[in-house]
Amino acid sequence: MMRRLLKVGACVGAAVLMFGCATKQAAYDYTAFKAAKPRSIVVLPPLNNSPEVNAGNSVYAQVTYPLAESGYYVLPVAVVAETFKQNGMTTAADIHGLDPKKLNEIFGADAGLYVTISQYGATYTVLNSVAVVTVEAKLVDLKTGALLWNGKASASNNEGGNNGGGGLIGALVAAAVKQIINSTTDASHPVAGVANARLLTAGGAQGILYGPRSDRYMTQ
């Protein structure tokens, strides 16, 4: 009996070890990032792959704060957008296709942040209505065109779950009210701010490094 228990325990232990190894996230390679030492960043208008037409403006309006808090000088997005407009560049796809060295000549920034919105808006079900935003970004050295970093983050307005009572009728009423709110207001706008913060705040696993304006710049 004892031998059988030991055998089962060994199998369980091996399974746990294998599972842990399979789910462990590999360390991000920051070699290029540390070598480039970017001080200033120009954020390009986001490429919007969601069906919501306002997604680009919503994400773009909230992208500067987490980068600045992470220690970088970020060119004002309104000025950047107007500069592109004055030069006949009105679509994010065209702007993302520009030569990085050309962007360096125009803005003088060390790096460019290319943001892509893959999900933005409310998803409706019988018992719920959830606003979800998913953003991806890559940081590129504008002098060499080298990729310095890339990442992805998501957020929703239902992350706390629905812990209220009321049974099925209460859930249906709550879902109906939430659907009205999400359809009459841009419920995804504050969610986009959370997604941006998760993606662009330095110090997290796989996240960007602290910039030279941060007190933690020399400790990373």
Results as ranks from 00 to 15, higher is better:
residue 82 E to V: 03
residue 85 K to C: 05
residue 85 K to A: 15
residue 85 K to P: 04
residue 87 N to D: 08
residue 87 N to Y: 07
residue 89 M to S: 11
residue 90 T to E: 14
residue 90 T to S: 15
residue 90 T to N: 14
residue 90 T to P: 05
residue 92 A to R: 10
residue 92 A to L: 11
residue 93 A to S: 13
residue 94 D to S: 14
residue 94 D to F: 13
residue 94 D to I: 09
residue 96 H to G: 08
residue 101 K to M: 07
residue 103 L to G: 09
residue 103 L to V: 08
residue 105 E to P: 01
residue 106 I to N: 04
residue 109 A to H: 09
residue 114 Y to K: 10
residue 114 Y to E: 04
residue 114 Y to T: 05
residue 116 T to W: 00
residue 117 I to Q: 02
residue 118 S to C: 00
residue 119 Q to I: 04
residue 119 Q to A: 09
residue 120 Y to C: 08
residue 122 A to E: 03
residue 123 T to S: 12
residue 124 Y to I: 04
residue 124 Y to P: 00
residue 125 T to S: 12
residue 125 T to R: 04
residue 127 L to T: 11
residue 128 N to G: 04
residue 128 N to M: 02
residue 128 N to E: 09
residue 129 S to L: 01
residue 133 V to K: 03
residue 134 T to Q: 13
residue 135 V to H: 00
residue 136 E to R: 10
residue 137 A to S: 12
residue 137 A to M: 10
residue 138 K to T: 03
residue 138 K to E: 15
residue 140 V to M: 12
residue 141 D to H: 08
residue 141 D to W: 10
residue 141 D to L: 09
residue 142 L to P: 03
residue 143 K to P: 01
residue 143 K to S: 15
residue 145 G to E: 06
residue 145 G to C: 07
residue 146 A to D: 12
residue 148 L to Y: 00
residue 149 W to E: 00
residue 151 G to F: 00
residue 152 K to T: 12
residue 153 A to D: 07
residue 154 S to H: 03
residue 155 A to G: 06
residue 156 S to E: 05
residue 156 S to H: 11
residue 157 N to V: 08
residue 158 N to A: 15
residue 158 N to E: 14
residue 160 G to M: 08
residue 160 G to S: 10
residue 161 G to L: 13
residue 161 G to K: 12
residue 162 N to H: 05
residue 162 N to L: 04
residue 163 N to W: 11
residue 163 N to G: 15
residue 164 G to R: 12
residue 164 G to A: 15
residue 164 G to M: 07
residue 166 G to W: 02
residue 169 I to V: 12
residue 171 A to I: 02
residue 171 A to D: 06
residue 171 A to Y: 01
residue 172 L to T: 01
residue 172 L to P: 00
